Amino acid sequence: MERFVLAKLGSMFGLEKADGIFAPGGSISNLHAMLLARYKLHPESKQSGIFTLKPLVAFTSDQSHYSIKKAAVTMGLGLDNVVQVKTDSLGRMIPQELKKAVKRVRDEGKEPFFVCATCGSTVLGAYDPLKELADVCNQEGLWLHADACVGGSAIFSDKLKHYLYGIQRADSIAWNPHKMLCVPLQCSVFLTRHQGLLDACHSTRASYLFQQDKFYDVGYDVGDKNFQCGRKVDVFKLYFILSVHGLDEIARRIEAAFDAAAYLSEQVALRPGFRQVIPAAQCANTCFWFVPESLRGQEETPGWWEKLGKVAPRVKTRMVQSGTLMVGYQPIENKNLVNFFRMTNTCVPVPTSADMDFVLDEIERLGKDL
């Protein structure tokens, strides 16, 4: 079953004859990518370690998931060797900035080896320009990984898969069905275009577990091609949901989540007291501020922004206490480090415009006296 599902997903993402595995989550899938990138560049490191190598450097956007940093720590590369590349006003990695960063690292005597492109960033829902990043990686000889844990579900929809244009050129892909598809935790897919590399990187040929003289095809024994031993049968959850609902229904639900986010963004722009963080929703995320009446019509000084940053945490506290809503909030560096709301839609239940109206009505109700 795992072979069948991974082959189908590989074909959907454009990775013909893809290899892959199910992982405990996106963080582990991203770690798999970085491990494979290092092994492909320096296969000798499996036996002799990394002690004689130049410092290896990974590149990711300044909006990417923290797991890239954690993977670098786990692999002994260190946080100093993770370069966060500048993004544009929508949170997308700028290819020219990546080229500059790679050159700077080479000039420092270090060795670039890995680029993580984000497809649906955690906060803004940004999709990095995969085609342009693939061009840079091809020119520089770098492994391109697509962290599509959040936004990879767009691949099911003919209407939305343009967001992932260029993903077929990635060396590896991470996608989490337990996010937008709401497959029960845990269910994370890792795919790579490089057949046999997972096995070559991870296997230790423990003969007391992975005997090679069985009567059936030992290729079905996938346990040795990752760094776990026992694993849950996570593939069954995804297979079951896709089989029961069908790909057309899954596409409809994903489109509804994107449409709801776009509707919410439009309403934020129209309603007094609400303000967009970016001009339109990306992926299924909508980011916005709620400005209480006490702060409206004032000069937006640093002190004003500081006060606004306290609104979302207080409204969230009231949400939890009243039990009517759960919407996250956070600051990000290129948005004044001021807390704003992040509404993220998923496919279950299928979100509607009425649901989005309720979100804004409830935030306004809970925060009107602040």
Rank of each mutant, 00 (worst) to 15 (best):
F215L: 12
S45I: 04
K86G: 10
E255M: 11
C119F: 15
D355I: 07
Y329K: 08
C187S: 10
Q282V: 06
K17R: 15
R38D: 01
H145R: 02
F340N: 00
P129A: 05
R106Y: 12
L133E: 02
D369M: 03
R271Y: 12
G120Q: 01
N226S: 11
Y329S: 14
T352R: 00
S27T: 07
V348Y: 15
K8G: 06
Y163P: 02
D355R: 11
A146C: 14
L185F: 15
S207G: 12
R314W: 03
L247G: 03
E299Q: 14
T118R: 13
G297T: 03
I28E: 09
L130A: 12
P279W: 05
D171Y: 03
A126W: 02
R38K: 10
K131N: 14
L247M: 12
L295Y: 09
P302L: 08
H42V: 01
Y208M: 13
W289T: 02
C347K: 03
E132W: 06
E44P: 00
G14Y: 11
K307D: 14
W305P: 09
L36H: 01
R92M: 08
Q321S: 11
L36S: 00
E255N: 11
T344I: 09
Q211H: 11
C116S: 05
V85L: 09
V218N: 15
P272R: 07
A134R: 00
D171I: 01
T346D: 13
A262N: 13
V348H: 13
L142S: 01
R231Q: 14
Y208C: 12
L209C: 05
E255S: 10
Q212T: 07
A33K: 02
F215T: 08
C182E: 15
F274P: 04
F290S: 03
L9M: 08
N226I: 02
Y220A: 06
H145A: 04
G166E: 00
A257S: 14
V82N: 07
D199T: 10
D107N: 10
F288S: 03
G219T: 06
P313L: 04
I50W: 08
P184V: 04
K103T: 08
V350T: 12
L6C: 04
P112V: 00
M75P: 01
Q212P: 05
G26K: 04
S67L: 07
N285D: 14
Y163N: 13
C347S: 14
R314A: 09
A71E: 07
Y329V: 09
H194F: 12
D199Y: 07
P313A: 07
E293F: 12
I241C: 06
D158F: 11
E249G: 00
A280Y: 15
